[in-house]
């Protein structure tokens, strides 16, 4: 029985990874079709020479960093405040977060597009970098609230009061005690925001206007036109980036567990 489970899990993992591995394998193929024509690195060279892809990459990173930092600040502050709300008000505020998490991406996308179009007419601006940034902050902030809230509930307020008694002013006590205690939750929220923003296609697609490009949009344009092995090269590099990010997070979690273990 146990063996059966193992074989089955192995099969599902094969199902998950096989397409990615095939995709990466063809990034080294010296031919445009899926017939093997020999090893080459030229698709990688082409990729780095493609100015549009490179600028999309910078746009994607800029949006992801800004959106996740702003969403983290907004969300953390919100979580601290929400925790002090009581009764109906608290439920109301939490439900607003839930609406945005549960409503389908495409609805969020088109509804924001409607608003930005109208606002654009009223205030004379066009959709682009700023509208995508605002949309991404909206996408990410509720996840920060969700990951920080449980930490606050388990926080011991007496340490904050102790810091005040020991001569910290309110800001110092907040920074050194509250932020310190909440840090793991804040960091998780930040990482979630960063990855959601990096990975987003649908919301960017509807709020980007006509000329702003991110990597997802670039991939969309490339896959829609015709099959180019440059996409495979890009996939390979992104896959490696994901694995590195994952290892960093896992390493951090381990360290945290160890710390908690030592404290106990």
């Amino acid at each position: 029985m146990k063996k059966l489970y193992k074989v089955y899990t192995g099969l599902i993992l094969f199902f998950m990874y096989m397409p990615i591995i095939v995709l990466i394998a063809f990034s080294f193929n010296d031919g445009k079709t899926t017939v093997w024509k020999g090893f080459t690195l030229r698709w990688y060279v082409d990729l780095f020479r493609d100015a549009r892809i490179m600028s999309s990459l910078w746009n994607t990173l800029a949006i992801a960093i800004l959106a996740s930092v702003i969403a983290t600040v907004l969300g953390t502050m919100a979580a601290i405040g929400i925790n002090n709300f009581r009764g109906k008000k608290k439920i109301l505020v939490q439900n607003v977060s839930n609406i945005s998490i549960l409503s389908p991406d495409i609805v969020t996308g088109v509804s924001l597009m409607l608003m930005f179009t109208l606002a654009g007419i009223a205030f004379h601006f066009q959709m682009g970098f700023w509208t995508v940034l605002m949309a991404h902050i909206t996408l990410c902030a509720p996840y920060v609230v969700l990951s920080v809230l449980p930490r606050i509930r388990h926080m011991d307020y007496s340490t904050y009061e102790a810091a005040l008694d020991l001569g910290c002013n309110q800001w110092q006590a907040f920074r050194k005690v509250v932020v310190h205690e909440l840090m793991p939750g804040i960091f998780t929220g930040f990482l979630m925001s960063f990855t959601y923003s990096l990975d987003d296609f649908v919301i960017t697609y509807f709020t980007r206007g006509s000329s702003f490009q991110t990597l997802s949009i670039q991939i969309y344009t490339m896959t829609h036109q015709r099959i180019s092995p440059k996409i495979n090269a890009l996939s390979a590099l992104m896959f490696i980036a994901v694995i590195i990010l994952m290892l960093i997070i896992n390493f951090r979690d381990r360290k945290e567990e160890k710390k908690l273990g030592e404290r106990a």
Binding site: I20, V22, F26, D199, F201, I219, I227, I231, S235, M238
Partner: peptide
């Protein structure tokens, strides 16, 4: 965490 379009593209291939 792989881009969703890339994963679909992989199946297309």
């Amino acid at each position: 965490w792989m881009n969703f379009l890339l994963r679909i593209y992989a199946w297309m291939t």
